[in-house]
Nucleic acid binder design. Structure first.
Lengths: 135, 135
DNA sequence: ATGTATTTCCTACAAATGTAGGAATTGCAA
DNA sequence: TTGCAATTCCTACATTTGTAGGAAATACAT
């Protein structure tokens, strides 16, 4: 017997709030997952000043927040994302546009291009992206 | 006698870090300045839940941070921005792109359009913005 | 079996942020 | 001139964030 009405079974859990420093970590893990603690540390050690302990803290906060899970592998942890990268990225974009531009994309683009001169090639790339969305 | 070398006399003071809630206030003040405390409260009271006290706190924090000045007018304060809106907006944009998109604009635009379907007119507007930047 | 190097677990702490409350002051109406 | 309503001044407090340190556990080498 087919179910009626109740289309969406799982309520969407709200995305965890990912802080600035945490984004740095999430981006690594979205790129490469599963990934061990020490691999995360290695991936970051040339780009960021952080002590390993700092990275450990960020990892466990991300687990608490429900952004990551981990499984024990020997004595290390293997992390993987629990939240979808594109979803988080879009949330962050929306939130930024809302905060700064009252939610509108066009003023962002206009203001940005006003300040940062892009090369002809870069402009062309943006135009191609728009063309892809051509109705 | 013309001055040599030392082109930039004033060192650029770093922009104050404006929080999420504070952006709401700054946007009002950039729109309408000088503006009194009670006017700010009024401007926000229909859009936001905040108690007036909360807004007062935000205003004084923004003064502390050097984002606003005020002058006494009777017993009220009249506020005006000390930081340039476009400058702050651009800083925020850069910071967002750095955090989420490793600083790149194109992936932002592509991802955003993937998620949010814009109308033909909106796309056209974006294209016009790009055309304005045509070399 | 045991020491050791590694890794996790728990704790810390200052600054920033959201969200106000109460006390003090003061311009103005009566 | 005096009381009041409005406004500012100072304080508060829980969370989140950046940034770790030390203690405890444990896998593995010898």
């Amino acid at each position: 017997m087919p179910r009626l009405i109740k289309t969406r079974t799982k309520p969407v859990p709200p995305l965890p709030q990912i802080s600035d420093a945490e984004w740095t970590v999430m981006k690594i893990i979205w790129q490469q997952s599963p990934i061990s603690t020490s691999q995360v540390v290695q991936a970051l050690e040339n780009r960021i000043h952080w002590k390993p302990k700092t990275i450990h803290t960020l990892l466990s906060r991300l687990v608490q927040k429900g952004a990551l899970t981990f499984e024990k592998q020997g004595r290390e942890y293997l992390f993987r994302p629990l939240v979808d990268a594109r979803h988080c990225v879009h949330e962050a974009s929306r939130s930024f546009l809302n905060r700064v531009f009252d939610g509108e994309l066009a003023p962002f683009l206009a203001g940005f291009l006003e300040r940062e001169k892009l090369s002809r090639a870069e402009i062309a790339e943006l135009r191609r992206i728009l063309d892809g969305k051509q109705s």
